Each structure stands twice: as C-alpha cells, then as structure tokens.
Amino acid sequence: MSELTKKRPEFRNINAFKDLTTYRLPVAGWVSILHRVSGALMFLLLPLIVWMFDTSVSSEISHGTFTAAFDAGIGFVPGWFVKLVTLAIIWAYLHHLIAGLRHLYMDMTHSVTKEFGKSSAIFTLALSIGLTVVLGAKLFGLY
C-alpha cells in the first residue's frame, strides 16, 4: 500500500460513543431507515388518519368539523399543530410509497449495484421531499 492512500477504518467492535458519531451512513442507508420510520409513523397515526377520513366524508356537518380542525384546532391542540401532524402523515405516506416502489423495482430487476442504489436513493429523497413541500404549501394555504 502506498503512503498516499489512506487506510480505511475497520469497524469490528463498534463503540457506540466513539465510532457511531464518526460513521457516515450512505444515502441508501438513510432511505432505508426513513422507510421504516415512515411506516412506523403511519401505523402510530392510523387512528388519526381513520378519524380524518371518517369526518371528511360522513356528512356536510362532519366535513365542517374536519375543516375547522385545521383552523381552530381540536380541543386544546391548536390548528397549526394539526396541520403539522398532517404534513408528517403526508411525508410518511409519500416517502414510504416511493421507497417501497424503489425496493420493489430493485428486487424485480436485480438492480443491486452501489451506483444504482445511491442514485435511486437520491431520487427517492428528492421526490418525496419535493412532493411534501408542494402539498405542504397547499395545506398551509400558500396557493
């Protein structure tokens, strides 16, 4: 090995306080972790999602209650917080859907190269965040 090339670190026995702070996770790793986080978030917020759907389609009166929740809030929860939680649900759904389609495509086509993993992970993050920003702007009344 020449003196100009740096020796890559070997992680055999990982010290959580020393090594994990310096370890750089690749983009595909972040997408994988966020895929799990978004699935867990949707599962935990499922009662709210069901309530939102039920009140939005039951009747005109319940639809009024639904829209008022975004303006006046629900009980002691202010309206901006309801919008923020709804934005989190939107992101979780979009990211989980796009990352899941990415995983399915990679499984079907056996596209498991490092380059494709990185480029598809960047595409997944950009698309899910971009769509979340667009829908969040609509949610917060910017257009």
Rank of each mutant, 00 (worst) to 15 (best):
L131P: 06
I61W: 04
G79E: 04
K138H: 10
L125A: 14
L142Q: 04
V133L: 15
G73V: 01
S38E: 07
F140R: 02
F53H: 07
F70W: 05
F140G: 03
A88M: 13
G130Y: 03
T21V: 14
L101E: 05
Y93D: 00
A72D: 13
A16L: 14
A92H: 02
H96V: 01
F81G: 00
K83A: 01
A88E: 05
I98L: 14
M106E: 13
F53R: 02
P9V: 02
L48G: 03
T124F: 05
T67P: 04
V37P: 02
W91L: 14
S38I: 03
G75V: 03
L125I: 13
I33P: 00
A68H: 06
N13T: 10
F53D: 05
F116I: 15
V37S: 06
L97H: 04
A16C: 06
L104N: 04
E3R: 07
L142V: 13
S58F: 09
V85A: 10
F17S: 11
L127Q: 03
L46N: 06
T86L: 11
F43V: 14
V27G: 01
E3L: 13
L44W: 10
L48D: 07
A40N: 06
F43R: 01
E3W: 03
D54W: 13
K118L: 08
H103D: 10
G117T: 00
Y143T: 09
W30P: 00
F116H: 09
I129G: 00
M108H: 09
L45K: 04
E115I: 08
S56E: 07
H95W: 04
R102Y: 01
V50D: 03
S128M: 03
I33W: 12
L135G: 04
T109Q: 10
T109P: 02
V37F: 15
S59W: 11
F17N: 09
T55P: 00
G75Y: 01
I89L: 14
S56C: 11
L125T: 09
E60A: 15
L139E: 07
T5E: 14
S111D: 14
L41Q: 06
F123L: 15
K138S: 09
M108A: 14
S128R: 01
